[in-house]
């Protein structure tokens, strides 16, 4: 039963990857068979249709301050890995399991509180 569920996920994944490719392939095919014209225009080629005009390249060097947010994400991501097996079994284990997870999250919440207190979550 479980491999079928993973198989379904795999089929959905393949469909999800193919689906956005369909308009790209169709557009290219229409261009190849001369169904659609190809006229470039600076406004047509702009990355965003509306909003603030983008300036410069997106390939520039980003501010090193972002790194703290990346580290924070990594730490809470690892927390999720520990909570995942807990989430699968906690239903059968009752109140102790709940307490253990609350303690686990509580210890990490201390860290979040510390980050907040040290104003590490602010952009300065």
């Amino acid at each position: 039963m479980i491999p079928e569920q993973f198989g379904r996920v795999g089929v959905l994944l393949m469909f999800a990857l193919l689906f956005p490719a369909i308009p790209l392939i169709a557009s290219y095919a229409f261009y190849r068979f001369r169904i659609r014209p190809e006229h470039h225009d600076p406004i047509k080629d702009a990355t965003y249709e509306c909003g603030v005009e983008s300036e410069g390249s997106a390939w520039g060097q980003f501010h090193a301050r972002y790194y703290l947010f990346a580290l924070g994400f990594v730490i809470f991501d690892v927390e999720v890995v520990f909570l995942y097996p807990w989430a699968v079994v906690h239903g059968g284990l009752g109140f102790t399991a709940l307490f253990e997870a609350v303690l686990f999250i509580g210890i990490l919440a201390l860290g979040l509180g510390y980050a907040w207190r040290r104003r590490a979550l602010e952009w300065r």
């Binding site: 703290l68 924070g72 690892v78 303690l103 210890i107 990490l108 510390y114 590490a120």
Partner: peptide, 23 residues
């Protein structure tokens, strides 16, 4: 399991201390 969360806490605090030592 609980000590793992203490380890993650120390990683978080260490990252903040390293980046924001002047505050």
């Amino acid at each position: 399991f609980e000590i793992a969360s203490v380890l993650l806490l120390s990683a978080l605090v260490g990252a903040i201390v390293l980046v924001r030592e002047d505050e």
